[in-house]
Amino acid sequence: MGIDEAKDKAAAAAGEAKEGLGGLLDKAKEFLTDDRIDDVAEKIKGIAPDSVDGHVDTLAEKAKEVND
């Protein structure tokens, strides 16, 4: 196998991996609705000390923004 052939195969594999990752991100966004993010945040706040509640809320809001 020549260098050009190896390069072409690597580029094709990278393209396939990128397409697969895009599909995974779409599925994650479907799963992580704002309601689910809120549910997880509430569960974390129920277990963690009260002193971290503000941080959990901030992180949940950022997760919702990224998910939009």
Rank of each mutant, 00 (worst) to 15 (best):
G2N: 14
L32H: 05
A48F: 06
A10P: 01
E16W: 08
K7D: 09
K29F: 06
G23I: 00
I44R: 00
I3F: 04
A14R: 06
A6D: 09
K18A: 15
I47L: 14
I47V: 15
D4H: 09
D8R: 15
E16S: 15
I44K: 00
K64A: 05
A13W: 02
D34C: 09
E30V: 08
G15R: 11
A60S: 04
N67P: 06
T58Q: 06
A63I: 12
A13Q: 12
E65K: 14
A14V: 08
I47A: 12
E16D: 14
H55C: 01
D34Q: 06
K43I: 10
G23C: 02
M1N: 12
K27Y: 03
V56W: 00
D68G: 13
L32W: 05
D26H: 06
K45N: 07
F31S: 06
E65S: 14
I37M: 07
V52G: 06
L25S: 07
A17P: 08
P49T: 05
A28M: 03
D39G: 09
L25N: 05
E5P: 10
A13P: 03
G22L: 05
D4E: 10
G46T: 04
I3A: 07
A60V: 03
K62R: 13
S51Y: 02
E16I: 14
E61A: 14
I3N: 08
V56R: 01
A12H: 08
K27T: 11
D26E: 11
D8H: 13
E30I: 05
D39P: 02
V66K: 13
K43D: 12
D68L: 13
D39V: 08
K43S: 10
D35F: 08
D34R: 10
N67V: 10
D50A: 15
A6T: 11
A10T: 07
K18V: 14
E65P: 11
I3S: 10
A63N: 03
A14N: 02
G20C: 03
K27C: 01
V40H: 05
M1A: 15
A13D: 07
V56N: 00
A11Q: 11
R36H: 08
K27G: 10
E65R: 11
K62A: 13
L25Y: 05
E65M: 13
A13Y: 02
R36S: 05
K45F: 06
L59C: 02
A48S: 13
A12L: 13
G54C: 04
E16L: 14
A60E: 01
A60H: 00
G46Y: 00
A28Q: 00
K64W: 02
I44D: 00
I44L: 09
E16Q: 15
E65N: 11
I44Y: 01
L59I: 07
D50T: 15
A10V: 13
E19T: 14
G2A: 09
D38W: 04
N67I: 09
D39Y: 03
D50R: 12
E65I: 12
L59R: 01
A6V: 12
D57V: 02
G22A: 08
A60T: 02
L25W: 08
D38I: 04
D8I: 15
L21A: 10
